[in-house]
Design a binder for these strands. Structure first.
Lengths: 386, 386
DNA sequence: GTGAAAGCGCTAACAT
DNA sequence: ATGTTAGCGCTTTCAC
């Protein structure tokens, strides 16, 4: 009954409901007979579930190993007739080239690694996708991982990718010290950092203009009459968080506005923390409470939207990062949009240009942001509380 | 000036704005001296940017190759003292084990492939993440790719993953014929299909109860007084689309309600098509126009929300799939929620149980959906148009 | 046009 | 406790 094993642990399915359990005719179709024409008495049960190798194909086709290699790699110098015989053997045996061996020999893996913060974060979806498109265009596979914003985990992942000898690496850094990458980069692993600069090493970076974007967003609120504006952002060890805070301060200073102590909250983007921070700066005496909030990223923005939805008095809001459906909320959420797909595409293009031999000093590409007014950022301060 | 190459193509950065171009002190730090104590006159410029190998480490530490291997793999049987010397050599040389070679030898790559439809689709984010978590727990890396809902591209990707000898495969099928996977599966590539069953082969499947979920969602609309309900879903070759349509028909039949011709629209989820379909079924004479819509997935739902937002008369809506901020819209969007993270986790658990040797016939796990009322699904039909 | 031999960097199996 | 040998499946080199 059972396929490869005799252990009578039935364990048909993990925890959840098991429906049909459709008792199958029989999956035990005999493996695509590696036996065939190969005269060897069956090798000592090789790994890979004993798949046929080029040697097997060669034996079956009655040609040399190298000829098979030529056919598989579409190299020239093979008679149509020989090629046909080889192809027949390949099909009959169900041969598929083992790229692991190829990689070992060639030294390039045709794969790149992408380390981001959270695969589930919608902000990274388009970035991930854009990187994949470029990789695909270059015939490379994409190995993916999340750092969960944990520097140790980032390092662990990056080094695992290096051990796999990925050709290149795109990293959204969680940590602020990337010297551990120096030997790898010196050994030829092209590396491009995205969204935030690398820490303590010189490396290519592609990022958005966090400072300028935040400054423009806060200026937008000021232009709409606000004088007391709060800032809620991510943890200060994250570069973009402090850059955006700098932008906030610059805009306030530009307008000659003071910044009260309770108006700035940097920290975890956990909903509870953000909620508490927002509520704190919205309360207080009339000349202490903010009339507008600038949020440092999409997760924070969404939480603040929820907080504001529960309040009587309208509060203006501009958020860094765009997000789906921002336009359908009431009011629509005004944002400083950055283009995640372009971020990813640019980084990947840069990476492959390095892999193709482009030299030169590390480069920093900064993408402009775009202010998208949708309503929430154009709410004036409440009468009597300006 | 330039690092590895003399080609004077400056090509510092791709298209976008290049800010700082911070002219770097000098990245040309001499590579971490692969030279060192190794007496060999420098090997013939090996690949991998001539990284040190175990052999180099062994030479430097004055021990045998196998001893280095033992240290690197934390095997027993090495004197603390020898170990120290080996570790010193490793650090000095910046050695990192080449997993490509390891893989070739061991036969297992400790990596799995995940093929989904679109890395950028927020629905797959949590699924992707859940799979990654499980992979990580098993010490495996995740190779990712999008099929773009194109069967050929799916096959191309899957076979590329097989050539890399991933240990296992999680596939959200785009095509409806997976016989091309038979030789791979017979050769030992564990494969679990998610979201939709495999076509024309027997294989493990983890999916949500599309039929039951849709039936419950439509019944919910009927319970709120609707008799003319539209269905807008994905292309009929996608299994979930037809299953959900089946659920729609079942609910209507359960209530003894007829289904008019213009009420069902299956096809691309491109916004224009969905918009047109929605508008068509909302127009028409009073006893032809629908008073409620059931949407077959999150992309369709979002588009229909946009359509409805522009209309005077309220129309009830229930959508398959939950999405972020559905609760913050006006009205909140009632959905049939499926748990993407559990889908991914279950599939990955199943995959690794297969890899750990769990035999038995292919299994089908079906996860229950959950109706989440939020307002849009509880709108009664307009007076006089029931 | 074709093939034999060497070897990529590692681990398994067997010495010592 | 440590080292030596063979070979994973492929590509490279060079000979025929």
């Amino acid at each position: 009954m059972s396929r490869r094993d005799v252990r009578d642990t039935p364990r048909p399915a993990p925890t959840p409901t098991t429906e049909g359990q459709r008792t199958v005719a029989d999956t035990t179709a005999p493996p695509p007979s590696v036996s065939g024409g190969s005269r060897r008495p069956v090798p000592p049960q090789s790994r890979y579930g004993n798949r046929p190798t080029m040697k097997d194909v060669a034996a079956r086709a009655g040609v040399g190993l190298k000829t098979v290699s030529r056919v598989v790699n579409a190299e020239s110098g093979v008679t149509p007739d020989t090629e046909r015989r080889v192809r027949e053997a390949i099909d009959a045996l169900g041969f598929r080239r083992n790229d692991s061996a190829r990689v070992l020999r060639k030294g390039r893996t045709a794969s790149i690694g992408l380390v981001l913060e959270d695969l589930a974060d919608p902000f990274y979806g388009p970035l991930n996708r854009a990187v994949e498109e470029v990789a695909r265009a270059h015939g490379a596979l994409l190995i993916n991982g999340s750092s969960a914003e944990d520097p140790d985990r980032e390092q662990e992942l990056v080094l695992a990718l290096c051990a796999r000898r990925v050709d290149g690496l795109i990293v959204i850094p969680a940590g602020d010290d990337h010297r551990y990458l120096e030997p790898e980069m010196a050994a030829g692993v092209a590396t491009v950092f995205v969204d935030r600069p690398a820490g303590r090493i010189e490396a290519d970076v592609v990022r958005s203009d966090s400072f300028g974007g935040a400054r423009a967003g806060v200026a937008h609120l000021i232009a709409h009459g606000h004088r007391r504006i709060g800032f809620i952002g991510d943890q200060p060890r994250i570069h973009t968080a402090t850059e955006r805070l700098r932008g906030y301060h610059a805009a306030m200073a530009d307008a000659g506005l003071p910044v009260a102590e309770g108006w700035v909250a940097l920290g975890s983007t956990a909903p509870e923390r953000v909620r508490a921070a927002a509520e704190a700066m919205l309360e207080g005496t009339a000349d202490e409470a903010v009339t507008a909030v600038f949020t440092g990223n999409n997760r924070v923005t969404v939480t603040v939207v929820r907080v504001l939805a529960g309040r009587e008095h309208p509060v203006a809001l501009v958020g860094f990062d765009d997000f789906e459906l921002a336009d359908l909320l009431h009011p629509g959420v005004t944002v400083v949009a950055q283009d995640a797909a372009t971020l990813g595409r640019t980084a990947a293009d840069l990476l492959f240009s390095r892999l193709d031999g482009a030299g030169g000093a590390p480069v920093q590409v900064v993408l402009e942001t775009r202010l998208v007014p949708r309503g929430s950022g154009e709410i004036p301060p409440e009468r009597g509380r300006e």
